[in-house]
Each structure stands twice: as C-alpha cells, then as structure tokens.
Design a protein around this nucleic acid. Sequence first.
DNA 1: CTGGATCCTGTGGGATACTG
DNA 2: CAGTATCCCACAGGATCCAG
Lengths: 137, 137
Amino acid sequence: MARIRHKSLDCSPGCAVEATLQLIDGKWKGVILYHLLEGTLRFNEIRRRLPNITQRMLTAQLRELEQDGFVLRTVYAEVPPKVEYSLTARGRTLEPVIMALKKWGDENTGFRRDPESSADLDEPAADCPVSCVQAGG
Amino acid sequence: MARIRHKSLDCSPGCAVEATLQLIDGKWKGVILYHLLEGTLRFNEIRRRLPNITQRMLTAQLRELEQDGFVLRTVYAEVPPKVEYSLTARGRTLEPVIMALKKWGDENTGFRRDPESSADLDEPAADCPVSCVQAGG
DNA sequence: CTGGATCCTGTGGGATACTG
DNA sequence: CAGTATCCCACAGGATCCAG
C-alpha cells in the first residue's frame, strides 16, 4: 500500500474512502492531479498554475504522486534542465474522483463557472476570477 | 459555507477541486460522512465504527462537519445523554463524491507496485491490507 | 530550468483526565 | 453517554539559499 504518510487506516467499510483521501490529500495533490489531466506539464508550467506553491512543496508533492504511481517523471538530459510530468495509466483512474470533486466544488463552493455549462467540467478554464477565494461564510 | 480553515485557495481552475478537498480532509471527515450516509447515528455508534478515533477528534470532526452544514446534531434532553448525528440535505450532495472516493478505493486499495510497470492496473485488490472489518450496516 | 538542503512554524491530532 | 480541557509532539508545509 502507499506508504502510510499518516497513521494506519481504520478498517471500517469506509476504509476505502479514507485510503483514497490519503492519496490526494496534502494541500496540493488534488489540484496537481487535476492539472495533469490536461496533459503533460513541465515543472514550471505546473508552478505557474499554482502561484502559491513553493518549489519545495511542488517537488515534494510531485514526488509523492510519483511514488504512488500516479505521475510519471521524465527527465531530459539537456543543457537547460527539462523535466516533464504526466499521468500514468493508474493516475488516470483517478479522473472520475477528481472530476467528482471538481463538480461538487463548482456546484457548491460558489466559485462560479458558467452555471449554464456546468455540465462540461472536463474543460478546465484557463483562468480564475480574482475573488475566487471564498471569504468566509 | 465553510470558513477557510487552511490558507487561501489557489485560484487555478482546479480551485474547486481543492476547495472540496478542504471540506472533507482531516483524517476522519470522509469516513464519518460515509457512515452517516447509512443514516442517523449516535455519538458512540460512530465511535464504534471508527475504533481508532478519540472522542476528542470525533467531537472536533463532527463539529467541523456541522459548521460546514453537512451534518445535523440533535440533542435529546434525557437522563442518559443522547445525541444523534445525521446528514443535512447539503451533506447528501456529497454522496457522489464520497462514493467516487470509495469506488476508487475499493478497486485500488492495497496497491503500490513499481511505478515503472504501473501500466497494468487490471489487478484490483478488493481488500484492505489490514483486517478490514466489515461493520455491516 | 529544476530541485536539493536547511531552518522554522503552525497546527493537526494523539493521550489522558475530568464533568454533567 | 456525550463532551470539554490540557498537555504534547510529530510533521505538513513555508521561506531561503545553494547547486547542477
């Protein structure tokens, strides 16, 4: 099993729920996975999509995702270092989960995105309004 | 609406994904929600389903879930204290998310094989590495 | 450009004891 | 039975500087 980052699981029937959650927890895992669904991305490309993440964390999260077998890290031995990250087949199995998460978020966190076209959530918008952060209830 | 417990979100399109994750993070939220899908449960009933949780944590998680508007806490002014927890309509909207999480977990729990040969994922281990007690509902 | 090494803090979460 | 209050620590995660 994925190396237990937390403690051991509670093996109730909800075990699976918890197990899955542990894999995509960590403030960034989910978002990174989401962006990777679009396709291969380079280190800095991901970074630009997650303006608030530090390279330290990005590297760490990416490493964990890699260890969990979700992302593939491809290093190009070039003068200007180039590393690409892409989802593995296993990583893609998470798509329905990520999408379920996004769907719910779109419909409930009031983040907005065309209420009309709320059906097509498989086409990530390239931007987010400034007031994306829900300022409290 | 859940007030931001963590920091502010990253306004990427994956924003919604992160937002949703923040609501069900915390080592227990997901599992508690899952069990509550079965129906109303009393404090100790939940506790029995999560043998490793401490009342301190259970109370805390339940409180957050309550604040996020996912669970309803009903107190009965009886001699032997009795408190029931049930999902609110809003809480039920999370069902597809929880189920997506569980489904993935059911199909993948017990993994972690070479990221190299992660191409094949047609070997679902439908069990928990540890003893997965099926607390039949 | 990519990301390792260090240092430092906040807080999630565990143990235990007490109360109504 | 349900819940609160304390103490305490490990670790997720942030800031920076350094290096190939």
